[in-house]
Design a protein around this nucleic acid. Sequence first.
DNA 1: TGGAATAATATCACAAAGCGATATCGGGAA
DNA 2: TTCCCGATATCGCTTTGTGATATTATTCCA
Lengths: 106, 106
Amino acid sequence: MTDHRLIREFFLGFIKIHILYHAAQAPVCGVDLGEELARHGYHVSPGTLYPTLHALERAGYLQRESRTVHGRRRKYYCATGDGRSVLQRARKQACELLDEIVENDG
Amino acid sequence: MTDHRLIREFFLGFIKIHILYHAAQAPVCGVDLGEELARHGYHVSPGTLYPTLHALERAGYLQRESRTVHGRRRKYYCATGDGRSVLQRARKQACELLDEIVENDG
DNA sequence: TGGAATAATATCACAAAGCGATATCGGGAA
DNA sequence: TTCCCGATATCGCTTTGTGATATTATTCCA
């Protein structure tokens, strides 16, 4: 395993939490998410992004809606109630993680 | 995919960051880590924990040392310099994640 | 009106990880 | 020795990650 890959594993969960967060703020489509995540330094290829969206939808955390925007067909995703609870839980656990690992900044 | 499994995916990275953190504080062995993680609500089976330790060691983030404690043979892991840099980076990214997703607590 | 180009999403194929179950290893006790 | 047990290691199967490629659907322009 390359270093690059192992480091990425650390943050795959972060990426999913980001997706849930954005879908809780406003409906978002795949390309939007790809660009938004890239702005945060997470480079996600379509082969990762779309299957992730499908999995989150299957799990009932995202709801999909087809729209045509500028003549392009897009799938917009919005967090469901369940999705928002999971996001809330992720917030809590991320806080706890930080509380612990930041106290001694070695 | 069950909900349980998908939720766990969110936090697998957290678990690895925890491991790196504890190994940066003091040398730790597998059983210690299992118990410590359980205290934080992360239940990690040996089939996950030990391969993870091996991967972190192969990547050069952990250094292993065999010790005999109370007549039992244990492998203690300590974060290397590279491991500490990666941990530092994880801290930074976790902070950024929280800064974003907490600002609007919907 | 073709039909090439483009945008957005979906899928394929392979490598790798997650994990419960099971095996192994090594020291102590008897 | 032999058995036991704590600790670690590995197996086998399922699932995920991902770059590359395909599919779908619309626009543009000769």
